[in-house]
């Protein structure tokens, strides 16, 4: 089922439209990111599962930022799911990638994944592989919202208490493109110290996700302590949408927190 993607990538590479294609490959039984540069060497390409767009996912557009920085004049192709496309769009507004130098090749996620992700849009605008799964809203957010305020605190504290401060959530996050991270700023966080200061550590990160998080859920997946970070950031995105009618990756333009807003426009 990777045929369509392979065909498309081969075309792009042969025509010289792209210098390389950032996708996934399977080597020694493992799936991982790979930059395909040779049109005749696409054998190992996979879509996150052996046969179809599966659940092995990587922050490909985060890797693309680094590749693009090293080769600023080249154009690259990149494999995108719905969330990756939202990520690209958001990274364009944050000036981290140049839309003229990126050619996305889309795949749609299977329904199981859309369900597990509670994904609002489990497919990119255009895709060459997979089928359009149904959108899902977030039951996990609704569940927490339904709790009494004290129980909400207790339940989050229970989750956060497992944090081993590995910074995995940040490191995998395609929207975390800063060189200097507030989670390592001595003034804000007790650095180099365990256990982490909860809930501050996680709330600082949540604030930084406002107007940025595109709900890919990689943080949740990578967290060794299984903290439901995605639920927290889903809520962050909901708030920004409710208050300012903006949802990163879905809406156009910059985050409302990064423009002066109404009064200045008058």
């Amino acid at each position: 089922m990777t045929q369509n993607v392979k065909k498309k990538v081969k075309e792009l590479l042969e025509s010289g439209k792209i210098k390389g294609f950032l996708g996934l490959c399977q080597k020694n039984g493992h799936i991982g990111p790979h930059l395909f540069c040779d049109p005749d060497d696409l054998e190992s390409m996979v879509l996150g599962d052996e046969e179809r767009p599966g659940d092995s996912r990587y922050p490909l557009n985060k890797l693309l930022i680094h590749i693009a920085r090293s080769y600023p004049d080249e154009t690259f192709g990149v494999l995108v799911r719905g969330c990756d496309e939202r990520g690209l769009k958001t990274l364009y507004t944050w000036n981290q990638l140049n839309p003229d130098k990126v050619i996305p090749v889309g795949v749609a996620c299977p329904q199981e994944l859309a369900d597990a992700c509670e994904c609002l849009r489990p497919y990119p605008e255009e895709f060459v592989e997979g089928e359009r799964a149904e959108e899902r809203s977030s039951a996990s957010v609704t569940k927490i919202s339904g709790l009494d305020v004290k129980d909400r605190f207790t339940s989050w504290m229970k989750e956060f208490a497992r944090c081993i401060k590995c910074y995995g959530c940040r490191d995998i996050c395609p929207m975390c493109f800063c060189n200097e991270c507030s989670l390592e700023a001595e003034e804000l966080i007790h650095t180099g110290e365990l256990p982490p200061e909860i809930p501050i550590f996680h709330l600082v990160r949540a604030v930084h996700m406002a107007g940025r998080c595109i709900d890919c859920g990689l943080c949740n997946e990578v967290c060794p302590a299984d903290i439901p970070l995605r639920t927290l950031y889903k809520k962050v995105a909901d708030i920004i949408d409710e208050e300012f009618n903006y949802r990163p990756g879905y809406s156009e333009g910059k985050s409302p927190l990064n423009i002066l807003g109404s009064a200045a426009e008058e």
Binding site: R152, S155, P199, L203, L232, K235, I239, E243
Partner: peptide
């Protein structure tokens, strides 16, 4: 000029985030 507009936005966001985190 518009500093308070920026503040107001942040506060609106923070209030809701606090509520969701279980802080009144």
């Amino acid at each position: 000029l518009y500093g308070n507009v920026a503040t107001e936005k942040r506060v609106r966001f923070l209030k809701k985030l606090l509520a969701f985190s279980g802080i009144e």
